[in-house]
Amino acid sequence: MIGVLLVLGATVLGARLAAASDDTVEYWAVRQDVRPGDPVLDDDLEPTRVRLSGGAAGNYLRTDEKLAAPLDQLVWAHEMRSGSLVGKASLVARSTQSRSQLPLSVNDGAAPADLARGDLVDVWVGPGPGDEPGRKAVRVLESVRVLQTGGEAAAASGSLAQTVLVDVARERMQESVISTVAAGHVTLVRVS
């Protein structure tokens, strides 16, 4: 009788443990690193089962939820690393992006040597060689993302300057910013 009760108890306990371990939900995760502004591709997303507690579950995109727009009309709102869960704010429709691309002429030595796409930089403008030395450098843009660097093309052509393309929110893009970067010596300082 005791043996039967032990077997029955173990069976019930095993069934409860199995049921408790299967309370995971399927969410979207990123298969490979993505950058802000990149189009969302089918290959970027992969389903993964996880157990999230409390309010955290509402922050991520489940595989059974409808997307804000068709996949071909979405772009990544921010950088994400491979394996990260996709947050509900990570995908935005192309039409809601109020972004501008600002090209900067950056002299050799005025940016990190290993500057790469996706880096965050502050844009400083100051006096260049031959300008009056009393002028001070000013930060005209803070924490903007590098979309493209021209380092390899500049090196191949023997140029002492490269064109760096940065992503700027339209509300931060003012005439004074454009005239300042066009008239001064641009220096990029990596912040992340």
Results as ranks from 00 to 15, higher is better:
D42R: 12
L41M: 08
A56F: 11
A89L: 10
R62D: 01
V106F: 06
S176W: 08
V144C: 02
A137Y: 10
G118N: 07
Q101I: 07
Q148A: 13
I2Y: 10
L41W: 06
D64H: 05
A56E: 13
A137W: 09
D38G: 02
Q97V: 10
H185F: 15
W76V: 10
V140R: 10
G150Q: 13
V7C: 13
V164C: 13
D23A: 15
P47G: 11
E142P: 02
P112T: 03
V140M: 10
R117H: 10
T24I: 08
A68T: 06
V40Q: 02
R135N: 10
D167Q: 12
A68I: 13
Y60K: 03
R81F: 08
V140F: 04
T96S: 15
W76N: 00
D43W: 04
S157G: 13
A137T: 14
V191Q: 03
L188H: 05
L13V: 12
V177P: 14
L6A: 14
T48M: 11
V189L: 15
T11H: 02
A56V: 04
S90K: 04
G14A: 15
S157P: 06
V92F: 04
G126K: 01
A116F: 04
E26D: 12
L6G: 09
A113H: 02
R49K: 13
R81G: 12
R170G: 08
D119N: 14
G37C: 12
D131S: 14
A154I: 09
E175K: 14
V186K: 02
A56R: 15
A19C: 05
I2G: 06
D114F: 07
R190D: 10
